[in-house]
Design a binder for these strands. Sequence first.
DNA 1: GCGCACAATAAAAACGTTTAATTTTATTGT
DNA 2: ACAATAAAATTAAACGTTTTTATTGTGCGC
Lengths: 341, 341
Amino acid sequence: MPRPTIKTIAQETGLSIATVSKALNDSPQVRPETRAIVVAAAARVGYQLNMHGVQLRTGKTYQVAAIMTAPGPRQNEWEGVEYAQLLSGISWALEESPYRVSLYAVRNFEESLATIRQIVSLKKADGIIVSGTRADDPRVRIMQEADFPFVTYGTTIRNAPHAYVDADNEQMIRHSVARLAGRGHRRIALVNPMADLSYSLTRLDAYRAALEAAGLPFDPALVAHGHLTPAFGRECVLSMSALPSPPTAYICANEASALGAFSGFHARGLVHGRDAVINATDDLNVSQYFAPPITTYFLPIHEPSELLGRYILRRMEGEAPEALQTLIMPKLIERSDDRLA
Amino acid sequence: MPRPTIKTIAQETGLSIATVSKALNDSPQVRPETRAIVVAAAARVGYQLNMHGVQLRTGKTYQVAAIMTAPGPRQNEWEGVEYAQLLSGISWALEESPYRVSLYAVRNFEESLATIRQIVSLKKADGIIVSGTRADDPRVRIMQEADFPFVTYGTTIRNAPHAYVDADNEQMIRHSVARLAGRGHRRIALVNPMADLSYSLTRLDAYRAALEAAGLPFDPALVAHGHLTPAFGRECVLSMSALPSPPTAYICANEASALGAFSGFHARGLVHGRDAVINATDDLNVSQYFAPPITTYFLPIHEPSELLGRYILRRMEGEAPEALQTLIMPKLIERSDDRLA
DNA sequence: GCGCACAATAAAAACGTTTAATTTTATTGT
DNA sequence: ACAATAAAATTAAACGTTTTTATTGTGCGC
């Protein structure tokens, strides 16, 4: 037996397929009693909407493209980004809707640009979710020019307003620096993401502002930019600890780099809490298992990711982007004393 | 200007849309010269195949469903599964094909079962990739009964033959136990995944066989099953180290649990290399940054994941499942001495 | 009782593609 | 040169929807 269609229901009820279609779509043109008959028949024959017909007719794809920049196969360094949780959060937010998450894995920024261009021009999706935003992001511009619905995970700085979700990096860094300064630290290192990323800039600015507020000088030697891998965190500690006046605190942008920083401590014979301390920002909550556990600003990844899903739905329904902007303040979890020894 | 279709090309060339379609699909029914004309015209007008038309006509979806069992939002414990890399590997393998990866995030086994049932019965995809296989997996049976193409990441034990990719858990555990026994260890603990998972059983069997081969007794107190989180690894160390005759080696099934084991060492005042050692299986290569770095069996996740993508393509083309089965032996990376102190 | 407005339904076209059936054109054998 | 045959093209139908346009039926005022 072939799969039932609206035609099946039409025969079953003696109505036309047009009426059936309208009934199923809650059109006011169809009488409530008729709708009830149609719905009953649909249930009886086990009717399920065939999306392909809808897609062809309406031009809608019912796909939300998630652009995921994953490191290439050559470099298998852990970056500690829980993309899986990010994706599942989005997926769950779309669960009740007819939309599905379509995955576009790209290797770098250029590829993501090309992919987005293609999705927009060939309308391969109805909406796009993209992360790793830059201060001035050409992808955002492309989507805006085409009036294509999208939400970014991460803010931009020099683009026109758009829908976004992000951790409140400014608040977090300000708070973090102030807290460490309040505990006696005068040499605070910033282990920052690649400089072209928007949140890198946000963090740097907040860092400088917070130092100034605390009456501490800014020293460029205490700031490093790089891919947030353990290798990078380790490298930062190895080089900065060799400075004439080494840092007594490291603010790591994620847990992977914090783990690497520990590895650097180990290599240099540094003891956490005595020689220096490590703080982190995280979404994995894995740093509670470090030895010793460290203080982190924790943002459970499912929060922003579900928001991304909900926002893209609303954006595709035409809601204004200005109404879809959220910064979430991560929660401080103090696991170590962090006072300057 | 509306998007060009085969109709556009037909008008452009004076041919019928049928000929255009056949020409673009390399049908032998069309003369090479004609094909050349069509292809040229297509390029000229910037023609791109509209999938919706194809999908409706052929019934094919050109979607590969990736079933991802991600932990729910409530429990945000890191399980160290690099799903992101897994997904991107699949995605890249499909890059040259017309297929896209469609993500289905589920919370647990039951949901994955229901999802697969739905995908199969409503033909929401042309192929399925599923992980977290059980010894006797009902999902596998469903897909086999419907003759639906699929590949599993992980083997099954009591199901009919099917396409799969997996790490060679048996070899790995046999080698691991033999190696530790050769270094003087007589109390080797197995930190194993949940008992219902197929590879849990495989590992346990291999563990017992290897112990026997090494002339060591099997002690159930040295085997633990659980979710491979840091919390679990920690718990294992905390409880097992309190045994009258505690283990001197821990074989952890992934890096997350190994990290937790370290946390347990820290809590108990155990020193790695003196009191006991930790070995792991991993696909992140993050254990090189542990303090100290530990010996691991490393399988770069992109290898199995790209294979998964290639296999599902071949499976969808009708290739026999028996030809699409691969166990990959992870590479041993010795980072610590591991001899019994 | 008659026309009129309006509500409810039906008919038909369209979205872009593939493919079975058919027609036209080219090639071959005698 | 002419059937017979093969090759290459065309015609037309179909996939399952939605939506515009057309038709039918109903209640209403007068």
